[in-house]
């Protein structure tokens, strides 16, 4: 059974997925960050593979990506770093990234390497539904990786149904149409999430974009199975200092 399914079978509320950029703040800090996230209460770890032109990301994640690239992070290096991660990491791990670097690495090779490293699922925001269905979806399925589609308040019911059917693990509900790291109008977000909950998706759903503190985390958990935090954590890491201390304080501020 997939680690993600296992997780949601045991925990259906207040699931916390934290995003970190591979190779940030230092090239070799990826695993340290992941271990620290696990130790301090993250239920899922989402590792971002840095790209030079990350369209869906706001300034904070963009600049962490650029720094990671300057540090020398590549998909190749990342898989070397993740090769032994399952000795210490027991929570589900998903990779998030853009299509171009993966295509250059080789899509099939990428899926195989991810599975081998013990990765559980993929979030590829610029892989469209049509190309997923006609080209890439089978390869992902063959590698037994979960695939997590994004949905937004503008996603039609018909499309939502389709994206839910094709997703496994969970659904990534974008709180409002925006890039990462933007503040949100929570009354509006709540209306959307209420609707989404009533829709009774096949998959559990986590809310991302604009979740940055205890208040926003609690707010979306009224409706969702949990939330995804990215920019706020990267911002905290950017201040420098001891990774474990930063992570401990950050997650405590959300969960306690």
């Amino acid at each position: 059974m997939s680690r993600l399914k296992n997780l949601f079978d045991q925990k259906s509320a207040r699931v916390l997925n934290v995003y970190c950029t591979a190779g940030f703040p230092q090239l070799t800090s990826t695993l340290e960050v992941m271990e620290s996230l696990q130790a301090n209460g993250a239920d899922i770890i989402e590792v971002g593979m840095p790209y030079s032109d990350p369209l869906a990301d706001g300034e904070v994640i963009q600049s962490s990506s650029l720094m990671a690239l300057e540090n020398g992070m590549t998909i190749e290096v990342l898989f070397e770093q993740l090769a032994s991660m399952r000795k210490t990491i027991h929570v589900p791990v998903i990779l998030m990234g853009y299509m171009n670097p993966i295509l250059q690495y080789g899509f099939e090779r990428f899926c195989k390497a991810a599975k081998e490293a013990g990765v559980d699922g993929l979030i590829l925001p610029d892989l469209p539904l049509f190309e997923f269905e006609t080209i890439y979806g089978d390869t992902i399925k063959d590698s037994a990786l979960d695939f997590i589609f994004l949905v937004t308040p503008e996603t039609s019911e018909e499309r939502l149904k389709k994206l839910d059917a094709l997703s496994s693990g969970f659904i990534y509900a974008v709180s409002s149409s925006a890039t990462t790291g933007k503040d949100k109008d929570f009354a509006k977000v709540a209306m959307y999430l209420k609707k989404l909950k009533a829709f009774r998706l096949k998959n559990p759903f986590l809310v991302g974009f604009g979740i940055k503190d205890k208040e926003s985390f609690n707010a979306v958990n009224e409706y969702a199975n949990g939330a995804i935090i990215g920019s706020a954590y990267i911002k905290a890491l950017s201040t420098g200092g001891d990774i474990n201390t930063i992570t401990k304080n950050f997650l405590a501020s959300i969960l306690k």
Partner: peptide, 19 residues
Amino acid sequence: QEGYYGEFGGAYIPEMLYG
């Protein structure tokens, strides 16, 4: 229909732009 000229084209966009 999907915007391809041979192998080139398409619409590789995040869901936020889909609409």
